[in-house]
Design a protein around this nucleic acid. Structure first.
Lengths: 250, 250
DNA sequence: GCGTTCGTTTCCTATTACCAAACGAGTCTG
DNA sequence: CAGACTCGTTTGGTAATAGGAAACGAACGC
């Protein structure tokens, strides 16, 4: 923990961040953002280009789709993703909503995959997007099935508030998680985004991995209880199929 | 061109490559792969973790989904993608095949998006995947609509052979491109992958960008001419809609 | 049980990343 | 139209930093 991190590595990813923010930039802009000399910034940009993570378009450098390449390869390599892919397609066709697969990484929720159906909400969500675990229905089902000591470690990090309905009190959250465990699912309405409701079930294919399968849809549709039950039924059926597929390989 | 690239930047992305190949590794494995001292490898791993692009799971480090995050954000930022997204969903539902959006980057074809339909082929393709431009129907439609000097520059780089049917002779390729320009589309059967056929149309929303909209399906289906025409018609209709959407904003 | 290998930390120094200066090309301005 | 900027890029000298050696504790295998 006391070992310092490498300046050049931190900086090159700061450059990546700047290239993202500015949607492409030259040495001058990067130099100003990092507070270094122009020639230094130039070195980073040239190196990023050499390794293929940036492209030089006549003096201004842009991030390349190598990020998409590597990211998608990581996504495809994930065994939960492989097991869930087809089922998510099916859910997308049959419910016409927005089925989503969420996993946990470094104490955050990560959307590993989603496939909008014909009637799906247009949210700002995307594969790879991170959210705190305690602010979404999926995250709560994941927390609810994680070892207690890991939950404690995450809660100790503080519970960020994202909307006025975010549960920020650790004890209230723990009670909520107990309820999720009993119910076997979690439902959020207008929690993360106003107008959106989510129903989520845990996906617990083995002792090491906890994930969540969820469907997001407009709040008004999810308030209809029979529709909510319908979605829940579809989710649980899919979840069971995914678990089986996961355990017995492809 | 004479300016040397930064060793530490090249190395950190070598580490990324090793972490990908080994599906997670510790300092010892990375040190051996890069031929550096264990403590050096450790520094890179710690730094990658600090910037969020790797996660430390009890001594072995794995690449994180930050790559997916950044990659997908780049994908969503692309205006051609934004304009084509809905149409690709529609094509996926209506044809039940594999509609694909391809763009050019640094002289290569990059799959920017694809959405398998209910009957789609299961290929090894994925968003972010790169191929040479001259080996796919999409790539050829892109080449066919690129400025001649850029085509020359790319052809000068050599035409890699990927199957026995790859066009590797520059002059034959140029003739083929002329045909593609005349026809307004390109069709490949068993070229890239045996058993797969692709029909592609150019997507040329403005003077700076050339992309391609394509549908991949089993060879036997595409050999049926009326089916091929059906796909082509759907593609061209979608292409026109995407062009309009691109020009008149979202 | 010992030996090995691992991740990790500390310290030293030699490498390397950084800055300064300068060049040529392009753009804006007076 | 000309001058003065700013830009990307290259060069070389130097000081900060990345890399190597050694050592610690823990985990594993023999």
């Amino acid at each position: 923990m006391t070992t310092p991190t490498m300046q050049s590595v931190e900086r090159v990813f700061e450059v990546v961040e700047v290239l993202w923010r500015e949607d492409g930039a030259g040495p001058a802009a990067v130099a100003e953002a990092l507070d270094v000399h122009r020639s230094t910034a130039h070195g980073y940009l040239r190196s990023l280009e050499a390794v293929g993570y940036a492209v030089n378009d006549g003096g201004t450098y842009e991030l390349s789709y190598r990020f998409l390449d590597m990211g998608t390869r990581l996504q495809y390599r994930n065994r939960v993703f492989q097991a869930a892919r087809e089922e998510i397609s099916r859910l997308s066709r049959e419910t016409e909503e927005l089925p989503t697969l969420v996993v946990e990484e470094a104490g955050s929720a990560v959307i590993l995959h989603q496939r909008p159906g014909a009637n799906a909400l247009e949210l700002g969500t995307y594969s790879g997007m991170r959210t705190p675990l305690h602010t979404t229905a999926s995250g709560k089902t994941i927390l609810a099935h994680m070892p207690a000591e890991r939950v404690d470690a995450i809660l100790d990090g503080g519970l960020e508030r994202v909307t006025e309905r975010t549960v920020t009190d650790p004890d209230r959250l723990r009670k909520r998680l107990a309820t999720v465990r009993e119910d076997g699912h979690a439902v959020d309405v207008d929690q993360q985004v106003v107008g959106m409701g989510t129903v989520a079930v845990p996906l617990h294919p083995d002792d090491d991995h906890v994930a969540s399968l969820a469907i997001a849809c407009p709040s008004e549709r999810i308030r209809n209880e029979s529709y909510q039950d319908e979605l829940l039924g579809a989710l649980k059926e899919s979840r069971n199929r995914v678990s089986i597929k996961y355990q017995y390989g492809r």
